[in-house]
Structure formats: structure tokens, C-alpha cells
């Protein structure tokens, strides 16, 4: 095969691949609510499962708070859920997470925030916390945990007289879970756990790079955001 024909074949391969989106799979699962929850209002997930999040009375105030603080991925995930709620239920009343964190200092910091359900319940039962939540006019805490995992890159490069050809792939995965807490009733109402994975592909022919990135982060954001947004819209009068 001449260098030119090799290059042409590689180019044709790129053109063919460009017509195909990078493959992704997304899975959405409900997170069980605490015992004795109100009747759930389901939403349909990607995998066709019922996602059990009851209507959220957004007019009574909510805050979207990252599960792990001061990390870019986590703050982006929380911002994504907050944007979905603002879009689906603009009449709901959002509390700025920084204001919430300051108002509850030192209880919601990276090393001190509750990690388990019983810890959250114990915290929410404290009179000074209830008083402060009342001052903030805040009823719901939507705790968001977003993570991205870029797998190992595998690739190869070959050069011919006509130039160089390089191809590689990288697996990517994102997950986003959101748990809704009713801080007045002091119980978890339920939540959603969305996961998405895919493989990114890059090709370089000569100096022309062609890159396919699976938008796993955007997928989980859309799925979880839609579910939470619908729950807030369902419980918030227009």
C-alpha cells in the first residue's frame, strides 16, 4: 500500500466514524426514601425505572448543596441540578448554598458535615439548627454528589512517508446522585442516582485531529436534573 493510499483509507475511516456518535450508556436508579415517606411521585428514568421523588414544596425554600465541598466537579454537578430546578420550577425559592453554609457554620464544612442519615437527623433536630433554618426560610436540602472518572487512555501512532496517523480511545464515566432531605420533617424523601459511561475516540491524520467525546457528565446531569426539577415543579404552585 502506498503512503498516499494509506492516508486516504485513514481519512475515509475518519469520515465514516464522524457520522457516528461516541457510544454512551446511561442508567438511572431511584434512591429509597426513609421509612414512612409520603406517596412518591414517580418520574421515568432512562432505563424505564420509576424514580421515587415525592413532590417538593419549592416555595418553602430549598438549597442544592454539594456532597463534597470546594471541588469543581461537585460544584458543577450541584449547579447543574440547581439550573434544572430553576428551569422547571422558577417559582420555587432557592437559597444560595454559600449563604446556607455560612449560616450553619461549623456544621456543614468538609470535615464536619453529616455523612450518614442518622447524623443528618441528629443535626436537624438541634434547636439552634431548626431556628436558623426557620430564619433562612429553608425546608429542603438537595444534596448532590457528582463524580467523573476518566479511564486509561489507549492509543497508537504510526508514521509513513506521507505523514503520521494516530488513534486512541479513552473510557469515561460519570455519576450523579441527588438526595432530597425535608429538614422540617427531618427525613430523607428519596432521590436519584444516574450513571453514564462511554468511550471517547481521537484520530489524527497528518495534522488534522478528529475527536469524539462521550458527554457522560452532561447525560447524568440531564437525567438527574430532569427528575429533581419535575419533583419541585410538581410540589410548587405556579
Amino acid at each position: 500500500m502506498t503512503p498516499l493510499s494509506a492516508l486516504l483509507r485513514a481519512g475515509a475511516c475518519c469520515v465514516l466514524l464522524a457520522g457516528c456518535p461516541a457510544p454512551t450508556t446511561t442508567e438511572v436508579k431511584p434512591i429509597a426514601a426513609s421509612a414512612g415517606t409520603a406517596t412518591p411521585a414517580g418520574t421515568e428514568g432512562m432505563a424505564g425505572e420509576r424514580v421515587e421523588i415525592p413532590p417538593i414544596a419549592g416555595a418553602e425554600g430549598y438549597v442544592v448543596y454539594p456532597a463534597v465541598l470546594d471541588m469543581v466537579d461537585q460544584e458543577e454537578a450541584a449547579a447543574c441540578i440547581a439550573a434544572a430546578i430553576a428551569r422547571d420550577a422558577p417559582q420555587a425559592r432557592a437559597i444560595d448554598p454559600a449563604r446556607f453554609r455560612d449560616a450553619l457554620y461549623p456544621w456543614m464544612e468538609p470535615t464536619t458535615k453529616p455523612r450518614y442519615e442518622d447524623q443528618m437527623q441528629a443535626l436537624a433536630r438541634m434547636p439552634q439548627i431548626q431556628e436558623r433554618l426557620s430564619q433562612l426560610e429553608l425546608r429542603y436540602l438537595i444534596q448532590v454528589d457528582g463524580r467523573r472518572n476518566d479511564g486509561t487512555y489507549r492509543g497508537t501512532t504510526a508514521c509513513t512517508g506521507a505523514g503520521c496517523f494516530s488513534a486512541g480511545s479513552q473510557s469515561m464515566a460519570s455519576s450523579l446522585s441527588a438526595t432530597v432531605w425535608d429538614l422540617r420533617e427531618i427525613r430523607a424523601l428519596g432521590g436519584i442516582d444516574a450513571r453514564s459511561s462511554g468511550t471517547g475516540v481521537d484520530l489524527v491524520v497528518g495534522i488534522i485531529p478528529i475527536v469524539f467525546i462521550p458527554y457522560t457528565g452532561a447525560r447524568v446531569c440531564t437525567e438527574a436534573g430532569d427528575a429533581i426539577g419535575r419533583a419541585v415543579a410538581a410540589g410548587t404552585p405556579k
Partner: peptide
Amino acid sequence: GGAPTPAYKPEERLFDLAVRDAVAELLL
């Protein structure tokens, strides 16, 4: 009270976050 505040956190706030978290843990 106190814990490492890793470099991947916002650099301009590293000392703010470290102090804030160390005091929070001490108080709890």
C-alpha cells in the same frame, strides 16, 4: 481540629478553606 486542604481546591481560597475547616472540626 484540622485536615489537609488539597491543592485541587480553589487556589486563591486554600488558606481560607483550611482555617475554616480546622476551626469547624475543633469546635465539633
